[in-house]
């Protein structure tokens, strides 16, 4: 962000700094709109979809149900793709979803070292750090140290299982519920579930 400043003085850069990537994207967008390949409304749809309808609130509902319903939990761990069908998530396709469960003995975390594959159907689009080389390189090399940097200290007796999404199978972590009494209401329960806990980089 640039600080507001007085424009009265003579200055060779009288405009905001130009972002070359943003300009290039906007230029290409305008060309594709002129061709009739793209409509501006489709960009608005993307923004609305991934802000309001397809995001970690979906995964949180799945987790909350798994915590409350042992039979659903079993179904979810055995066949995640089938188990989430009943939620009817908005247009979010996932070819194969595998849900891995954190326990007192096992901590799971998800990465995609080659690009940034992520279970869009249940978690929406990935956060920026998930797509950057720091996370992608270290998650498979020194996951304990990486988790420590992210504020998660794991007992050395807990086995760390890293899932590198190298094909089209998508992974989500079923976190352990927070300690203490949990709300009865599934919606209230879902509000306790953070996005990062379902990637496996936070505890609840």
């Amino acid at each position: 962000m640039t600080e507001p400043h007085d424009h009265d003085h003579s200055h060779s850069h009288s405009h905001e700094p130009l972002d070359p990537v943003a300009l290039r994207a906007e230029a290409l967008e305008s060309i594709l709109i002129e061709r009739g390949w793209l409509k501006s409304a489709q960009v608005d749809d993307v923004i609305a979809r991934y802000n309001d309808r397809v995001g970690p609130m979906n995964g949180a509902r799945v987790v909350a149900r798994a915590w409350r319903d042992a039979q659903f939990r079993e179904h979810l761990l055995a066949d995640g793709t089938d188990a989430i069908c009943s939620f009817g998530f908005d247009g979010a396709q996932v070819e194969k979803l595998v849900v891995v469960e954190n326990t007192d003995k096992v901590h799971n975390m998800v990465v995609c070292t080659l690009c940034s594959c992520y279970p869009w159907a249940v978690l929406g689009l990935p956060p920026k750090w998930y797509k950057e080389p720091e996370y992608r390189s270290r998650a498979v090399r020194e996951p304990r140290a990486l988790l420590g940097d992210l504020g998660v200290q794991l007992n050395s007796e807990i086995e760390v299982r890293v899932w590198d999404s190298s094909a089209e199978v998508r992974y989500m972590v079923l976190p352990q519920p927070p300690a203490g009494a949990l709300p009865e209401d599934e919606q209230e329960l879902a509000e306790l579930v953070s996005r990062d806990s379902m990637i496996g980089v936070a505890l609840l």
Partner: peptide, 18 residues
């Protein structure tokens, strides 16, 4: 980039928009 050395802590911004 998996396993490549030389990277530090991820820069996390919990308030970052989609």
């Amino acid at each position: 980039v998996g396993g490549k050395p030389g990277y530090g802590a991820p820069k996390v911004d919990p308030a970052a928009p989609v």
